[in-house]
Structure formats: structure tokens, C-alpha cells
Design a protein around this nucleic acid. Structure first.
Lengths: 214, 214
DNA sequence: AGTTTTCGGTGTACAGTGTCCACATTAGAA
DNA sequence: TTCTAATGTGGACACTGTACACCGAAAACT
């Protein structure tokens, strides 16, 4: 974690150095631990060792800070999906590979939700978080949004003749819905409390359904 | 709306009469307008024409009030699903009827989410809202939970030989995930802003996917 | 009936929050 | 070196949830 030392309480200079970054780091930590509601301006400034109002030099609002944290969370999600994609098998059959890549995308999503529930909820806490042009979403190492990673996987399915082209349009929303819904149910719905293995099992069945049904 | 006159500001007697009910009504109105975060204790007491602390005679906590509102929201969801079920076609082919009933359940869910986004979000705002035995969930007119309505529809599919029995176990979570995810995306995800017709179109495709993939 | 208990609403108070304003400090441009 | 713009501080206000002490009235028991 780079910049992890930026949120120190002790400070000798009047200026902080990189307060914006420090507040963002603290905000992410708060979101990680307690979800979107836990990212509290005063607590962030406190941990950064600075007066509450100092935050307003870097963020217009509490919401502005939350938006920034949200973007980081989305980036983390994209990264998790990329990691899963990188570990996907790269066999000979193009159809199998394409299917495996879609599964990897889904599994990355589900596992991120389970491993980082606070960040996951924060990623979707801001209404205008996704699809708004005024709000740049977080991207992974490859520069792609979570949504774009999913789109690419679906394109791969079409290319490998697994998915008929006429069903391609808007397929993102179908696949996304299924996985997003399961993630929600697993975080604080009736499926919470299940361990990783059990959630994975349900996840596999869900991905089966998506694969069959798309 | 019965009890709608219970939340009046004017009051001549020292006792309110049915403050618990009044607070609940106001809480539902707040949730309806602004989601879970909008159900604020002080505002509720204000609208009920009562001192802030009076609420504590009827609800242990702000969370307790929120739980109660949450149960009402779940009941409203179940009612919406029941309404859609009642309007489902009742043709001759048992398989078609069973399919139509599952679609009705899904459409009820999706339409409720779109028509009452505040209540919908409130219904799932409380972590222990679903599946906790300590927390009685809201039921519709028939006495069934939203979840139970879904279960019944799935049972119907099995009975009509549309769904093989070995795929029945846990199918609720798959169907629910898909529909719940789409509802979320339609409320404040990238699909918000779509009108009823467009959302319905995506909803139909999603239900197609579920039907094929279950 | 009259008395007492117990329920329900009030008032005051405190900690915590977001945010506004006026001010202080200092890094960097002039 | 001086001036200026950027950045952090202090104090204040309105708002929240919630605890404690109090009181008013309905109901229960003589």
C-alpha cells in the first residue's frame, strides 16, 4: 500500500504535504471497515492529524470524499477481476477459454464482494457512481472498468461462437444483474454467514445459469 | 392508507393515542421518499407532533424503528408480487401457467423496485432483515413472504415438469439474485433513468435467462 | 369513591456530525 | 524581499441520536 504513511497524526510542518491523498487513504480504510456510512469527514481529518475544516480545501463535500473513495473501491473491484482473469486457464478450445474468462470475471466480482464487503458496498453506494459521465469510475491495472472487463468477456463469447450475436446486445446487464444480486445476498442478505466454499458453490451454480441462459 | 390520520401535529390530550403506529406511518413515508437514511427519529417525532424522546417509549432505537419500517416495506413488496400473481394468465397448459407465475413473481419484484425505490431499498437496508429468526419479515395479504412466494412459484415449475427436481434445491437464490441485481442496477446503477417500458424489456430478457438457465 | 402504580410524553443535556465564516500561516511567485 | 494565493486553524451553528430526571394522566387496586 503506497501512501500508507501519509495518514500519520504527528506532523511538524504547518502544511501536511499531501492531505488529499491522506484523507483518501483514510477514507478507503474507513469504507473498508464499515462501508459507505463509515467514511466520516471528521474522523478522517482526525486520523490525518488535521483540523476538520482542512478537508474542505481538498474536497467540496463529504460526498466528494465519498465519491473519491468510491472510485478507489471500483478500481479495487476491477483489479480483483483482473487477478481472477489472469489465473483463468488458457486451454486449446477457444469456446472453453471464453467461458472460463466469463466465469473468472464473475468469480472475481463475487470474491471481491465477499473478501471486501465494505469496499464493495461503497463502490455502489453512490447513486451516480456508474454510468455518469461526470463521474470517472475506477479502473484496474489494465485501464479497464469492471463493466468493460465484463463486456470484453462477453465479446469473447461471441467471438468463440458460444454466444449468438443477436443475444449480445445488453448482455452485460443480464450477467451483471445475476452476479451483483448474489453478491448482495451473500453480503447482508439471507446468504451471509456462508463461508467462502459455500458461497463459491452457489456462485458456480449461478454462473452455470448465466452461461445457459444468456 | 388506514391510520393516515394518526400522524397529525395537533393534539389536545396529553397522550397521543397510538404513537407507535403514527411513528411507523411517518417512518414509512420518510423511507418512501428518501430511502433508509431518511428515516430519522427526530423528524418522525416532529411530524407526529411529539417530543423526540417520546419515540423511545415505543422503539428502543432508531434501528428498531428502521426495522419496523423495513418489515412494512417487505410486506409491500410481497403485496406487489401477489398483485402481479393475481393478474397472471391462467391458461390450460400447466407448464405455461407455472412459467407465467414465476415471471409474475419476478415482474412484481422489479416493478415494486422501480415504483417504490425508497421502500425497496429500505426493505434490504437492514443486514439482519432476511433470514434472521429474531426478525419477523413482512408478509403479504396471503401471509407469505416475498421469498416464500418465489419458492411457491419454483415448486410450481417442478410440479409442471418445467424444472427438473434435482435443480430445485437453492433455486430461490439463483432467481432472486438475478432479479435483485437488476432491481439494484435499475434503481441507482447504470440502468437508472430508464422508463418503465425499457426496464420491463430488460426485465423480460432477464427472466428469459433465468427460465432457460435455472 | 380514593389511592397508588405504572405507562407515556416533556425538558434538559451531551456527544457527535457536516459545514460556514473569519483568521493564521507559509510556500512560492513577483 | 515582498506579495499573494494556497492551505490549515478556531469558533460557531444546526442537526442528529440518546441518556437522565421529571411530570401528567390513565388504569388498577383497595
Amino acid at each position: 500500500m503506497e501512501g500508507a504513511d501519509a495518514n500519520l497524526l504527528r506532523r511538524d510542518t504547518y502544511r501536511h504535504g499531501d492531505l488529499r491523498r491522506a484523507l483518501l487513504d483514510v477514507g478507503v480504510a474507513l469504507a473498508r471497515a464499515g462501508g459507505p456510512d463509515a467514511v466520516v469527514l471528521r474522523e478522517a481529518t482526525r486520523r490525518a492529524g488535521v483540523a476538520p475544516n482542512a478537508a474542505y480545501r481538498h474536497f467540496a463535500d463529504r460526498r466528494a470524499l465519498l465519491h473519491a473513495v468510491c472510485a478507489v473501491a471500483q478500481a479495487a473491484l476491477a483489479l480483483a477481476m483482473e487477478a481472477e482473469l489472469a489465473a483463468a486457464p488458457d486451454g486449446a478450445d477457444a469456446a472453453d477459454v471464453a467461458r472460463a474468462r466469463l466465469r473468472a470475471v464473475g468469480n472475481g466480482y463475487l470474491r471481491f464482494a465477499q473478501d471486501e464487503p465494505g469496499l464493495f458496498r461503497t463502490a455502489f453506494a453512490v447513486p451516480e457512481a456508474l454510468g455518469s459521465l461526470a463521474f470517472p469510475p475506477g479502473v484496474g491495472a489494465g485501464g479497464l472498468t469492471a463493466f468493460q472487463l465484463l463486456s470484453a468477456a462477453l465479446d469473447g463469447l461471441v467471438e468463440a461462437k458460444v454466444l449468438p450475436g443477436e443475444r449480445r446486445l445488453g448482455a452485460e446487464f443480464l450477467a451483471w444483474s445475476a452476479v451483483h444480486g448474489l453478491a448482495m445476498l451473500a453480503i447482508d442478505g439471507p446468504l451471509r454467514g456462508l463461508d467462502r466454499a459455500q458461497t463459491d458453490a452457489v456462485g458456480q451454480r449461478l454462473l452455470d445459469m448465466v452461461e445457459r441462459g444468456l
